[in-house]
């Protein structure tokens, strides 16, 4: 006796008929089977299901297209993105975000100007990973959008392209009324090593929202902005300990010798995360003036603090 032991590669055409079945559930199953073929010839057929009268079938088609790539897939998905049913639109947006082929961006661009903010967000999210320079113009315009989610997605596109000319716009967004927009902008502008970028990060240290302050503090160290040293030091008593952790880390990364006494003060904090970060930062700075402080904490009750204190001392030796 013999049997076929392998997963079949079904011919796409054999499934086409099922797409016209009277029963929506059968059509839905057909869409799933088409996706399983992984055959690019299935894209147009699945796309045709995006015009099905049943929202369930359209939803399945929007999900199924996530298995394919390329311009044609994007052409189909934009149909789903403007679907009246929000579930279909959301699934289409998710599938758009799966695209990898830069050529897929072209059919998506026009939708960045669509009347519906969910469509605009979805379109921006779709082109982000594709990193097409042409996306900049669309995204910059979208920074003016009324809808904060659209602005966040637009910042995503711009951030990925790391273009110096976008800096003024990013800096403007760092003053956006919405905290999430400001936080994203602060993260996105840190590609630039310019003084303007540094100033924006420094301003973020005084933001009303802790997560914006945290990102600003983190980026100043990560990007090694030397002019961040003094403002970071000035902000070291931030009300929020998670922000203080990032400030201390960045002061370490920037090797700010003047900060040693203040960082050392954090060695006595009740939050062990902060004590640990302070010890690590003093190790990074590796300045002899830290030794007497560190020696007091070699036997801290927290093993991570202890290890970092010892590590720091060994760096000073």
């Amino acid at each position: 006796m013999t049997f076929e032991p392998f997963e079949a590669f079904t011919d796409v055409e054999d499934l086409a008929d099922k797409l016209h079945d009277a029963d929506a559930s059968v059509r839905r199953v057909a869409v799933m089977e088409l996706a399983d073929t992984a055959d690019p010839a299935a894209v147009a057929l699945i796309g045709s299901a995006l015009k099905d009268e049943s929202a369930e079938v359209r939803l399945q088609a929007a999900i199924a297209l996530g298995e394919f790539d390329g311009r044609e897939t994007a052409e189909m998905l934009v149909i789903g993105l403007v679907d009246a049913d929000p579930r279909v639109a959301r699934a289409a947006a998710d599938s758009l975000a799966e695209l990898k082929d830069p050529a897929a961006a072209d059919p998506i661009f026009p939708l960045i100007g669509h009347a519906d903010p969910r469509v605009r967000s979805g379109a921006l999210r779709g082109v982000k990973e594709l990193r097409r320079p042409e996306a900049l113009a669309y995204a910059l315009r979208a920074l003016e959008d009324q809808d904060p989610q659209v602005r966040v997605e637009a910042l995503g596109v711009i951030g990925y392209l790391k273009a110096e000319e976008t800096l003024p716009a990013l800096i403007a967004c760092a003053r956006d009324p919405m905290a999430e927009v400001r936080r994203t902008a602060v993260g996105a502008l840190a590609f630039s090593r310019s003084n303007h970028a540094a100033e924006a990060l420094i301003r973020a240290l005084a933001d009303a929202d802790w997560s914006v302050r945290e990102t600003g503090a983190e980026m100043l160290g990560k990007g090694r902005y030397a002019r961040g040293a003094a403002p970071l030091l000035a902000a070291i008593n931030d009300a929020d300990w998670q922000v203080r952790v990032k400030i201390v880390r960045s002061l370490g990364q920037l090797k700010v010798v003047e900060a040693v006494p203040q960082i050392a003060a954090a060695l006595g904090d009740e939050i062990s995360n902060l004590r640990k970060e302070a010890a690590a930062a003093l190790g990074e700075i590796a300045h002899a003036s830290a030794r007497p402080y560190l020696e007091r904490y070699v036997d801290d009750g927290d093993p991570d603090v202890r290890k970092n204190v010892r590590w720091a001392l060994s760096r000073i030796e």
């Binding site: 029963d23 559930s25 059968v26 839905r28 199953v29 799933m32």
Partner: peptide, 9 residues
């Protein structure tokens, strides 16, 4: 469930 319509996912 639409197993009766051919789903076996």
């Amino acid at each position: 469930c639409i197993a009766d319509k051919g789903c076996t996912v």
